[in-house]
């Protein structure tokens, strides 16, 4: 290692956040956010669960539209639609994980991960994506939450078979 590789500068900055939060920059005390406020904030997250169904329906609609777009394009022009499918499935994953809808989360994550491997020229891969989208709609409309019910296992198996057969 030469000298320039090991050279470093260290910047000791004034704590600007502490005074902005009403404490002295030099005080050793640890500033806290009150537990009451944190509980109220958690309630704000929990209250939004009432919007879950409507929200997932909206994203799945966008996802399906992007999927139609993907299928209608020539293979070389599919990247844009694929990016959207990736983002929408990632959005569904974020939302479902927040409210513990494990079955929908499973399909969303599986679809998102498959988007990274998909071969746009391979028709068989489209069957795998379609299987995910179908399973996600069934999950939503039948209000399946956990990935442990019989129906959930059936859907997961159907998607697993599609992946195994058409990968």
């Amino acid at each position: 290692m030469n000298k320039s590789d090991s050279e470093a500068e260290i910047f000791h900055r004034m704590n600007k956040l502490k005074p902005k939060a009403g404490l002295s920059a030099f005080s050793k005390s640890q500033g806290l956010i009150s537990q009451k406020r944190i509980e109220k904030a958690q309630k704000a997250i929990d209250d939004k669960e009432s919007l879950y169904h409507e929200e997932v329906e909206k994203i799945l609609g966008n996802l399906q539209a992007s999927w139609k777009d993907y299928c209608a394009q020539k293979s070389d022009n599919r990247t844009n639609a694929l990016d959207r499918i990736y983002n929408y499935s990632n959005n569904v994953k974020d939302l479902t994980s927040m409210y513990n809808h494990t079955l929908m989360e499973y399909f969303a994550q599986s679809l998102r991960d498959f988007c990274e491997k998909i071969d746009v020229h391979k028709k068989e891969h489209q069957i795998i994506v379609q299987a995910h989208i179908d399973a996600m709609f069934v999950t939503l409309h039948e209000k399946l939450r956990s990935d442990e019910s019989e129906k959930a296992k059936e859907l997961m198996d159907a998607v697993a078979v599609a992946i195994e057969k058409y990968s």
Partner: peptide
């Protein structure tokens, strides 16, 4: 998934324990 306590904990940490910056 985010939780209120996790967000609050990170904000508290940033306010209370600023770290020096290193440039190499």
């Amino acid at each position: 998934p985010v939780s209120a306590s996790e967000i609050a904990r990170r904000i508290q940490h940033l306010v209370n324990n600023p770290r020096p910056f290193v440039k190499s």
